[in-house]
């Protein structure tokens, strides 16, 4: 990873910067509009969605996480939300994602890989007075396949990852 000093100027041109920012906004749009199959198709076949339990956690397989989901587990989560008797989704959770401060920290044009770090705020609403505010940083490891950017790893670092949590039903 590049040091902060090396990131004082963009490492990619403004067209690519805009393209990547659009990708992040598009991904958030799919989540907020409940187009979860389309969201899931942004991942590569072996792509992973990860919410670490601890700040700076490096190991997703030898330590527990809040979530560490491959294509199979993401598929279960998406299908469950659509089930008639998903009791905890009566009424359903509504979410809104804001993604900002996108900085491309690595780019390998030959391999077609790119890492972008960003900040997010997510508000979830379900019922009564229970409005949940989630915030933190994303790290997206992307790869360009054909004309499409695809997600190899979406890492969600919650500011309160090490706290006591209510359930995570949707994708952050």
């Amino acid at each position: 990873m590049l040091t902060s000093a090396q990131l004082d100027k963009p490492i990619v041109d403004s067209d690519l910067q805009r393209e990547i920012e659009h990708f992040l906004s598009y991904e958030a749009h799919l989540l907020d509009t409940n187009q979860l199959e389309a969201w899931d198709s942004l991942f590569t076949e072996d792509g992973m969605y990860w919410i670490p339990l601890e700040h700076g956690q490096e190991d997703p397989v030898g330590m527990v996480s809040i979530a560490y989901e491959d294509a199979i587990l993401r598929d279960v989560r998406i299908r469950r939300l659509a089930e008639r008797h998903a009791w905890s989704q009566q009424p359903p959770t509504i979410s809104t994602h804001q993604v900002t401060n996108a900085i491309v920290t690595a780019h390998d044009p030959t391999a077609g890989t790119l890492t972008v770090r960003s900040r997010f705020q997510v508000v979830e609403w379900r019922k009564r007075n229970f409005l949940r505010h989630l915030a933190g940083g994303y790290v997206h490891d992307l790869i360009k396949i054909g004309e499409q950017w695809r997600i190899k790893l979406k890492r969600v670092d919650l500011v309160n990852c090490d706290g006591v949590h209510d359930n995570f039903e949707l994708f952050v």
């Binding site: 919410i51 527990v64 979530a67 560490y68 279960v76 009791w87 905890s88 209510d166 359930n167 995570f168």
Partner: peptide
């Protein structure tokens, strides 16, 4: 742990509800 007992468990979420 991640699938059955974590805060993101798709199983436990209906228990908690």
């Amino acid at each position: 742990s991640n699938i059955v007992n974590s805060p993101s468990s798709t199983v436990m979420v209906d228990d908690v509800e």
